Computed example of a mutant assay.
Amino acid sequence: EIANRITIVDMLKDFDAIIATGSNNTSRYFDYYFGKYPNIIRKNRNSLAVLTGNESEQQLQNLNKDVFQYFGLGCRNVSKLLVPKEFDFDKLFSAFEPFRTLYDHNKYANNYDYHKGLLLLNEDTFKDTGFLLLREKESLASPMATLHYEYYHEEQTIHSVIGKHNGDLQLVVGNSAELSMPELDFGATQAPELWHYPDKLDTLAFLEDLN
């Protein structure tokens, strides 16, 4: 049984390797204490969606799942969009509409109201659906009830943004029929296949290599 393979101890010692999961902050401590051992140390990750403006209504509705499932808090959730300069946000907002009921969730609504208040106080420019705030920003991670976006002019710009965030990026989604870089099509981020390894690290291969 699996219970016979798990031991809870007060202090870690006499081990061969470390697998640890935490935030960017905790990963620094994991690396400090365990960096000299074979390890997989996981930290914060986010996902990116690349849109061209040619997406069908169904594709945009599939993107809903990537953005809103689990309140957008998972490492596979899309936290940022890359869009062309002439992108029609109204079409996207219409596709997002079925998730308006998220605002009925008290903690989600508190986050929405809080971040909207900050944006208004700071006189920042943003787009507002009434339940989701979109802000043009370079950073990949976005708080709950917000979504960052950035404009691109050519495909090379997309590759540049992906390269800049490579260490913090879990995956890229988009229309693989139009673009070369998406790893998954819209709507598939929360349904990984067995070979879609977190952080692109095969844990079983890591364990096998210890022998």
Rank of each mutant, 00 (worst) to 15 (best):
E123I: 03
P98L: 08
A109K: 03
L204E: 13
S27P: 04
T157I: 05
I40L: 14
V50T: 01
N110D: 15
P198L: 10
I158H: 09
E123C: 03
D31Y: 07
V172L: 07
L179K: 03
E57C: 03
V78C: 06
L207M: 11
F206M: 02
S56W: 10
R42V: 04
A177T: 10
F30T: 03
N122R: 12
L118Y: 10
H148A: 10
N46P: 01
S27H: 03
G130P: 02
D16W: 04
S94R: 12
D90P: 01
E178L: 06
E55Q: 04
L118R: 06
A191C: 07
Y151C: 06
S79W: 11
L82Y: 00
N54V: 02
L171M: 07
T203R: 10
D88F: 10
F126E: 09
I41Q: 04
L60N: 05
E193N: 08
G53A: 03
V78K: 00
L171W: 07
K137S: 13
F71W: 13
I2N: 11
T129F: 00
T157E: 15
D88C: 08
L179R: 00
Y37P: 01
L210F: 01
Q190A: 09
E138P: 05
V50P: 01
K13Q: 15
A177K: 12
T7S: 11
H153R: 14
I19V: 15
Y114S: 05
F96K: 04
G130A: 02
Q58I: 11
Y152D: 12
D16G: 05
N77S: 14
T189D: 10
D128C: 01
L169A: 12
R45V: 06
T146C: 13
F68C: 04
Q58K: 14
D113I: 08
R5M: 09
K13I: 11
N111K: 03
Y149F: 14
E55W: 06
F89H: 06
N4R: 11
P38Y: 09
T157Y: 14
N106I: 12
T52H: 04
F206W: 03
A191Y: 07
R100W: 09
S23A: 02
L12V: 05
V83N: 04
E155G: 01
H115W: 08
D66P: 00
E86V: 03
L204C: 13
W195D: 15
K127Y: 05
E97Y: 08
H153L: 11
D88S: 11
R76Y: 08
E154N: 09
E57N: 07
I41G: 00
P198G: 04
N211W: 09
L133D: 07
S139C: 13
D168W: 02
N166K: 11
H196R: 09
Q61I: 12
S23W: 01
T7N: 08
Q170C: 03
R135M: 12
A205T: 10
D16A: 09
A141W: 07
K80F: 07
E150L: 12
Y152R: 04
N46F: 07
V172D: 13
L48P: 00
D168F: 02
I8G: 05
H159Q: 14
N211H: 11
